[in-house]
Amino acid sequence: MKTTNRFNVIVAVAATILMGMFESSDAQLQMNFYAKSCPNAEKIISDHIQKHIHNGPSLAAPLIRMHFHDCFVRGCDGSVLINSTSGNAERDAPPNLTLRGFGFVERIKTLLEAECPKTVSCADIIALTARDSVVATGGPWWSVPTGRRDGRISKLAEATNNIPGPTSNFTTLQQRFAKQGLNLKDLVLLSGAHTIGVSHCSSMSERLYNFSTTVKQDPSLDSEYAANIKANKCKSLTDNTTILEMDPGSSRSFDLSYYRLVLKRRGLFQSDSALTKNSATLKMINDLVNGSEKKFYKAFAKSMEKMGRVKVKTGSAGVIRTRCSVARS
Rank of each mutant, 00 (worst) to 15 (best):
R265F: 07
K264V: 04
Y258E: 08
K295N: 12
G267M: 03
R265P: 05
V262S: 00
K298F: 09
N278Y: 07
L282Y: 11
K264D: 13
L275F: 06
L268S: 04
A280H: 15
L282C: 05
N290L: 12
S271G: 11
L263F: 00
D255Q: 10
L288F: 10
N286C: 09
D255S: 13
Q270M: 04
K277C: 06
S273I: 11
E293S: 09
L275K: 05
K294Q: 14
R265I: 03
N278L: 11
L261T: 08
N278M: 04
F254K: 04
T281I: 13
F254G: 06
M284W: 13
F269P: 06
F254L: 09
K283N: 15
L256A: 02
A280E: 15
S253H: 10
L282A: 06
F254D: 00
D255Y: 10
L275R: 08
K295S: 10
T281F: 14
D255A: 12
S292P: 00
G267P: 02
V262F: 04
S271D: 12
R265G: 03
D287Y: 12
I285Y: 09
N278H: 08
L282M: 09
L275I: 09
S257R: 07
D255V: 10
S273A: 07
R265W: 01
S257W: 01
K294Y: 01
F296L: 10
L275G: 08
S271C: 09
F269M: 05
K294C: 05
L275V: 05
F254N: 05
N286S: 11
Y259S: 02
K295Q: 14
L263A: 03
D287Q: 15
A274Q: 11
N278G: 06
K277E: 13
N290Y: 06
K298A: 15
Y297T: 00
S271L: 06
I285S: 07
D287V: 14
L288Q: 02
Y297N: 09
S292D: 07
S273W: 00
L261Q: 12
K264G: 03
S253D: 12
K283V: 14
M284N: 07
V262H: 03
L275H: 07
G291A: 06
K295G: 00
R266Q: 15
